[in-house]
Amino acid sequence: MILAVDGGATKTVALLFDEESFKIKGVGLAGSSNFAVVGERKAEESLRKAISEAEGDKADKAVFCLAGIGDSEEDTKRGIDLVRRIFLNSQVFNDGVGAYRATNLFEDGGVFAPGTGSVAFYQKNGESHRVGGWSWIFGDEGSASWIAKTAITYATRVVDGIEESSELPKAIEEYFKLPFREAVIRLSKDQDKRLIASFAVMVDSLAMKGDPLALRVMNEAADYIVRMIDRLRKEGGKVSVIGGVMNSKIIRSVVSPLGVEIFYSYQAVLGGIVLAGVKMSFEERNKLAKELTEKIYNLPEEELKSYLFINPKLKNSET
């Protein structure tokens, strides 16, 4: 029995996998376990919650793929110490490594992961390389935090009379339940990446309705994703995209014609199974991805809305 955990800035996904039957036995969801952002105590709470829901105490071995691992020597040590307080004999990797194994298994190629933040990895001649992931202040382009942050910046221009009319300022007031200026100042002071990133769903919704500035933001995000795909293709091999931003129909309409394989953010947890040494074909991986989706959508609706920002009613749709 294998416990696989994928922990990022927005959510934590845990699953229990029975290698003998090749079936997923349990799935759990929780909030952020990016210890570098929310702190070790809150990260540990999220990890334990997700693992408990997945019945991870039944596991014989575990693989954790967490944001923050590999960012610095100090962060890596903190992350490993945190994980081994929960499951002593475990392997620990960066969440981008898990996303790569989930999408490309052990073949050369690349993956771009636009979620709350964004980072890319490619493997060439068996060696792994990182691209992007420069933090949400200087990077994370194409991600939910970048979409929301850029939209809020554009909204300040609307209020200042620099940009054309847009519903973004009103949407910010309604979403954060504060007058516009107070909302911007509060968000600037608190710097809650997950909270800010969650507003990307509203930006996408306004863009779908034709709001010019919201649409500009989503198109800029799509353009960056396309450029990153082109960058990864220069290294050869199959290129995949995985992350919550791919829930956007606008983004998907631009990316889908490029012929890349698209995955949803929670499917990155399958990389932990691969890293645990389970051999599988792409066809077997696809079956597991489908099985995982079915189990995810059977979780409580509030968890889906809180951690994945998706509507449970979309179960039978493309999303």
Rank of each mutant, 00 (worst) to 15 (best):
V239P: 08
S240W: 03
V241Y: 00
V241G: 03
V241L: 10
I242R: 08
G243V: 01
G243W: 06
G243E: 02
G244V: 03
G244L: 00
G244K: 00
V245E: 02
V245W: 02
V245Y: 03
M246L: 14
N247S: 13
N247G: 07
S248C: 06
S248Y: 00
S248V: 00
K249M: 13
K249S: 14
K249Y: 12
K249L: 14
I250K: 11
I251V: 15
I251P: 04
R252H: 05
S253G: 05
S253K: 15
S253C: 08
V254N: 05
V254I: 06
V255C: 05
S256C: 04
P257E: 01
L258M: 12
L258G: 02
L258A: 02
G259E: 12
V260I: 10
V260P: 01
E261A: 08
E261H: 07
F263I: 01
F263D: 04
Y264C: 06
S265C: 07
S265F: 01
S265W: 03
Y266T: 05
Q267R: 05
Q267H: 06
A268Q: 11
A268W: 03
A268G: 15
V269A: 10
L270R: 00
G271D: 04
G271R: 01
G272C: 09
G272R: 07
G272W: 06
G272V: 08
I273H: 04
I273A: 03
I273Q: 04
V274W: 08
V274E: 02
L275E: 07
A276S: 15
A276M: 12
A276Q: 12
G277R: 00
G277W: 04
G277K: 01
G277H: 04
G277L: 01
G277P: 03
V278A: 14
K279H: 12
K279W: 09
K279I: 08
K279P: 09
M280D: 05
M280P: 02
M280V: 13
S281E: 07
S281G: 12
S281A: 11
E283M: 11
E283Q: 15
E284F: 09
E284H: 11
E284R: 15
E284S: 10
R285L: 14
R285C: 07
R285I: 10
R285A: 11
N286S: 15
K287A: 05
K287P: 02
K287D: 00
K287G: 00
L288Y: 10
L288Q: 03
A289S: 15
A289C: 11
K290P: 00
E291A: 10
E291D: 13
E291N: 09
E291V: 00
E291L: 01
L292E: 09
L292D: 08
T293M: 15
T293C: 12
E294A: 11
E294Q: 12
K295R: 15
K295G: 01
I296T: 11
I296A: 11
Y297H: 12
N298M: 12
N298P: 02
N298W: 02
L299F: 13
L299D: 13
P300F: 04
E301C: 01
E301R: 08
E302M: 07
E302I: 03
E302G: 12
E302Y: 10
E302K: 11
